[in-house]
Design a protein around this nucleic acid. Structure first.
Length: 597
RNA sequence: GUCUCGGUAGCUCAGCUGGAUAGAGCAACGGCCUUCUAAGCCGUAGGUCUUGGGUUCGAAUCCCAACCGGGAUACCA
């Protein structure tokens, strides 16, 4: 039980005792005491002056008196205007440190029999081009969200639906057939997803030329777009694929396999993974029967051209197409099918879709349609909606070549990390392999932290030249602090200091030490809040605060050269506990921490 | 047009279930390497929290309106 909860209950008691009023706990506004005032926890007393019918100062003093007399953790108090600043006893903070220090999984809640099962869909790439910066944000958020949910005691199934069929992949296939000369990743040395992406680009270039030619010959733009040989060829491939033409399916399989091999490399670099992968080629026909059932039950309606629609005007939305007039499915139809499928495959308590905010409308509609179809889980779907990554010149457009490729970006960052490390003379004594591993850890730490520290729902700006730094509020700064803590612990061992991990309650930490313990004690609360808010950014901001505080402490207070053995022990245990908290927190962001850097 | 999300320091972002003098980092300027790692620490400078109303003891935070920007809006996924 956290100190805030203990205090809150006693404040409710105090109000009952002093003013004979039963109050709701939401009236008790507790906050961390600001640095410039004395105390640990502050109660805002304004809400109670109406009950006491006294001045804020007097009211605060009365509540303060009550708490000081009746709550052992409250040592003293002071009043500034309408704020009651409570000082918690050092003995309590020492006990908190002891608990945190003893718990390997500090901050985490273990799953139990009754744990909820959350399925999280994230990543969901198309197989016609490599992953880019937008996918990176998706993957990092999705993976981190899963880690946070797990740390909150949930069971999690990470899922990925691969968009492996459709006109986009047929375009790459068409281009490869015509202009590929039998190239393969092996023959060219090009990573499979990039090779397929190159043919996608090639297709678009040739297609544009053909359109220009046709327009010159007198066709309108629309006609030209429809009649260009490249487009006709891609369409033909799509039809052949749907008819299961063996040659086409074989080509499709081969090129998709190249892409998967390439994606696997990128996923491994990013440190993300999945428990269950759905392929759209296997699920794209799902959902049609549900739509037809809805039509039969009068939930949906049919137009003269025999296309099927949902009327959502009662919900304040528009009409939504569910089946084309040729009976084929659209995106929405498929999502209805896959949702049903997943709830049949797993006992899902919470379904979460990590998908960009451009699809807010889609998921709003999906929830309503599932609900209309009688699936009770419909209303409970959660769209984890995140903002776009923008570049200085605006939105990324793959066709205009203004994308930041995921592999290129990672490679570039590893290179910068290597250079920086060498310039600073770090990692001497490491083997080249160990050093390379650490550069990678630092580079990815920088990238991941940069992206995850921003509120997911907001659009963010990414400037490739300036954005990713290694100083200040960054992943490497946190990793650096962790590495220094490990260094302290190594040296403490070298010098033969016996570390007593259970701090005696009689030891009195200094105010700076107390401040650090306080911050550590807030970690479990931060994990819980991050889980409730679905916000990795909350964890990132928490760790930064902790690390910043530790750095100041580290600079001012010697740990190894401190003469007093009890104080030295306290500081080392505190450092160790901060290190563990940082490591546990970074794990929730999917960021590794190095033992040295 | 409608719906939706955003607008905080030169730049990138915190803070938003209303609370004390609005915080970090980057960039700029000035200090600190003989202690446990300077990817660090300390300091200086930088703000009409887009604007205007409202609610109240109190508003960056809640409500309304306007302006600016992103996104969605019936057959791409």
């Amino acid at each position: 039980m956290s100190i805030e909860l203990i205090i809150r209950d006693h404040i409710i008691e105090a109000i009952a005792q002093c003013y004979n009023q039963q109050i709701d706990s939401s009236l008790v506004q507790l906050q961390n005491t600001r640095k410039e005032f004395d105390g640990d926890i502050t109660l805002v007393v304004f809400p109670f002056v109406r009950m006491s019918k006294k001045s804020p100062e007097q009211t605060a003093a009365e509540i303060g008196d009550y708490l000081q007399q009746n709550v052992s953790e409250v040592e003293k108090y002071n009043v500034v205007k309408g704020f009651l600043n409570l000082t918690i006893s050092p003995a309590y903070w020492v006990s908190v440190l002891n608990e945190a220090s003893a718990d390997v999984n500090f901050g985490y809640t273990s799953p139990t029999q009754s744990s909820k099962l959350a399925m999280v869909e994230y990543s969901s790439p198309n197989t016609n081009k490599p992953l880019h910066l937008g996918h990176i944000r998706n993957n990092l958020l999705g993976f981190s969200l899963c880690e946070i949910l797990k740390a909150n005691g949930n069971k999690v199934v990470k899922t990925n639906i691969v968009n492996d069929r459709g006109i986009h992949i047929c375009k790459s296939m068409y281009a490869w057939k015509l202009w590929g000369n039998g190239q393969t990743p092996e023959s060219t040395g090009i990573k499979g997803d990039h090779l397929v992406g190159d043919f996608y680009v090639k297709f678009d270039q040739e297609y544009k030329k053909e359109i220009a030619n046709l327009i010159e010959q007198g066709q309108t733009k629309d006609e030209a777009e429809q009649n260009a040989p490249a487009m006709l060829g891609a369409r033909e491939l799509l039809l052949k694929w749907e008819a299961r033409d063996p040659k086409t399916v074989e080509l499709w399989k081969m090129m998709n396999q190249w892409v998967y091999t390439g994606f696997d490399v990128t996923y491994r670099e990013l440190g993300v993974n999945f428990d269950k992968i759905y392929y759209e080629s296997e699920t794209y026909l799902y959902g049609k029967e549900e739509v037809l059932r809805g039509l039969a039950e009068g939930i949906f309606y049919q137009k003269e051209d025999s296309s099927v629609w949902a009327d959502l005007t009662a919900e304040g939305l528009d009409q939504k197409l569910l089946l084309r007039n040729d009976g084929t499915s659209v995106y929405m139809t498929q999502d209805i099918g896959t949702a049903k499928e997943r709830f049949q495959d797993y006992p899902i308590d919470k379904m979460i879709y990590v998908v960009g905010n451009e699809q807010n409308y889609h998921f709003q509609v999906l929830a309503i349609l599932l609900d209309k179809l009688g699936f009770e889980f419909g209303k409970g779907l959660h769209h984890f909606s995140y903002g776009m990554v923008e570049l200085p010149q605006g939105k990324m457009k793959s066709r205009e070549g203004t994308v930041v490729d995921a592999d290129d970006l990672i490679a570039e960052m590893v290179e910068v990390a290597r250079k920086t490390s060498e310039e600073l003379g770090k990692l001497e004594g490491y083997t080249p392999e160990q050093a390379a591993q650490t550069y990678k850890m630092i580079a990815l730490g920088a990238l991941k932290y940069f992206i995850l520290k921003v509120d997911p729902k907001k659009n963010m700006l990414f400037n490739p030249q300036e954005s990713i730094d290694f100083n200040g509020n960054t992943g490497p700064f946190i990793q650096y602090t962790y590495a220094r803590i490990q260094s302290v612990l190594r040296k403490a061992a070298d010098r033969g200091f016996e570390i007593n991990r259970t701090i005696d309650g009689k030891v009195t930490p200094s105010s700076k030490e107390l401040q650090l313990i306080k911050l550590v004690s807030q970690f479990p609360g931060a994990v819980k809040e991050a889980g409730e808010m679905y916000s990795p950014a909350l964890i990132a901001n928490y760790i930064y605060e902790l690390v910043k505080e530790f750095n100041q402490f580290y600079h001012e207070f010697p740990m190894l050269t401190e003469e007093n053995a009890e104080v030295r022990n306290l500081r080392i245990v505190l450092a160790e506990t901060v290190g563990k908290t940082v490591r546990n927190g970074m794990k929730l962001l999917g960021i590794d921490v190095p033992e040295r850097m």
